[in-house]
Design a protein around this nucleic acid. Sequence first.
DNA 1: GCTAGCTATGACACCGATGTCATGACACCG
DNA 2: CGGTGTCATGACATCGGTGTCATAGCTAGC
Lengths: 360, 360
Amino acid sequence: MSTIYDVARKAGVSPKTVSRVLNSDGPVGEKTRATVEAAMRELGYVPSNAARMMRAQKSGIIGLITGAISTKNQPTTQQGLPDLFIVQGIQRALESSGMTVMIADTAGRKDRVPHLIDTFLSHRVEGLIYVAEYHQEVNLPRLPEDTPLVLANCFDAYGTPSVVPDDRRLQADLVRRLIAAGHRRIAYLSLRPDMAAGRLRSLGYRDALAEAGLSFDAALLEHVDFDQPETGPQLLWDTIDRMLRLEQPPTVLCCGNDQMAMMVYGILRSMGRKMPDEIGVAGFDNYRAIAETLYPPLSTVELPYNAIGVRAGERLMRLISGEDRDDRSPVLVAGPVHWRGSVNELRQENVVTFRTLREE
Amino acid sequence: MSTIYDVARKAGVSPKTVSRVLNSDGPVGEKTRATVEAAMRELGYVPSNAARMMRAQKSGIIGLITGAISTKNQPTTQQGLPDLFIVQGIQRALESSGMTVMIADTAGRKDRVPHLIDTFLSHRVEGLIYVAEYHQEVNLPRLPEDTPLVLANCFDAYGTPSVVPDDRRLQADLVRRLIAAGHRRIAYLSLRPDMAAGRLRSLGYRDALAEAGLSFDAALLEHVDFDQPETGPQLLWDTIDRMLRLEQPPTVLCCGNDQMAMMVYGILRSMGRKMPDEIGVAGFDNYRAIAETLYPPLSTVELPYNAIGVRAGERLMRLISGEDRDDRSPVLVAGPVHWRGSVNELRQENVVTFRTLREE
DNA sequence: GCTAGCTATGACACCGATGTCATGACACCG
DNA sequence: CGGTGTCATGACATCGGTGTCATAGCTAGC
């Protein structure tokens, strides 16, 4: 690969003049500039980042650590692909800044993180973002003081700047919408409570009930570890079966996420229950490949992973430029409810009407 | 960030000695080594890649261009997330080589590719892989002679080394399996024929029929542009409706991919058709989040995107080390059929038996 | 006509590693 | 005891850019 010296020789000028042309730095004669540019084109010259970086003491590189790339062939993931959307958002937020985003993948092994951090430090990244695959607490090795770090979709015990989904509010918003549609018996099939998302969403569910003056019925809340390959579907089936046999059965099943909702569709149909007229289903995530493809399309609440990424990227840029250095409060991100065909509007008349299932 | 000079000063030795400790280069006295290592630890020293790279004239970086990260929030993707799995495979193939993989995202805009290539060249990547989001022909700008390029999931007209799925053989394998299970009336709901995958898979379908001595029936083949948000589902419904009214209706519907199969599940159930006893469904891709979660689980053929990535990575490494420089033949990758509950084994008796739908 | 000021350009040092070569201290051998 | 080889170490140049400073040529102003 040719260098600035090759270009200089070809154009009959000094390397420094070539540098000036490259960076529109000092003044350069019109004719000289043309000669130099021609030489650069002819040689296919591309400046070396390494050399620039060394001189400038700035890399223009942001490091991104994630499992987004590697973990997606696990049996079935609890989540959709949140981390991927987050990475996407980060890229979007950073592309205008001229930073190059370097992505390192944990390959599903947390113990590789320190090594990845070292690699990034050797590249002299100007900042780091750690993206977790689901909302959780993490504990990363300490970084040098002058390298800012932002946690996305996770948080730690040291008050490292973080951006996380507002699970509690999102779930409450969805349940509020169900209540507004006239539903009073709302079942909640929750994710495992040892997950931050599961815990917070259950709280949101209760918030919305309380707010509307509906009493909480423990028979309508169940934590279902649905994505265990063997026991999961059976567990879900039994839970739904139990709830539907209640004296006052639910009119809608709120699912921990869209993937669980997809499974619930299959189960309800096997049971011969028609959606949405006999029973409604709601999801969580707005995982569009599922929510829009299912029939009827799934009502769900959008957890805007993209926005988490964007906010994380913006936050990091502010840290790099020296702002907000001591702002320790986490950024909470919420999103809209998507109301589709999987839940009926009951309004005041709390009557189940049977219609032909498919109508245009 | 501290440098080799800081370490040298602290340890009371020359920079070169520190360098020797770092790289276990020349001989270093036991005591000196200990002193230097202590100094490095104390300063939190991490060597600068830029400086190394400049001296070594080798970056140890592989560039990856893809839309995997950014394009996944498009309405609903025709494909699953093949490119992501490919990226994953590439990472796996390259991690043992000690190369750092740098991922650049097109952000869905093909016109950004030249710019991304320049960025990579400025980082002096030792090789490039371009990953397409679906099997297609591409036309990339020319690279300098000394930077090898591998195309993954795509090919071009210049014989650039490429690794692509063997769609034709995969589809044939699946249909062969259906035939072995006793099916004779096999419908094929194909992807758009202007896509390489659609064309090749249709050919594979016909290959398998011909091989088994079954005549091709045009009434059982339809190209369905199923992922148009408005017309898609209707089109699919109409096509299935038409096929099921045939004098000799199909006993199994072969779908262009798993996502289409998911939609077909919903339609068949709305029509009141029971799977797999009244009608079987087969997919393509083995997109596990769908294939394993659907009920009944989907029989499909695995398009091992992961393997495409691995092969592409390996191919690039060989090119970098100077092997196979003039091997122009594309690498074809196939995968296994996954036989799950969505298609019945009819065997010799071509009888539809009705059983209770859910059995453990 | 001399100087101040501007334009266009180049010489040189430096960023942080490492390859090359030199050197000093020993050990070993004849 | 002198010569040779090995070990441990350092001085110095170099990779490809860019910041600093110097300088030559020209113009404008007094």
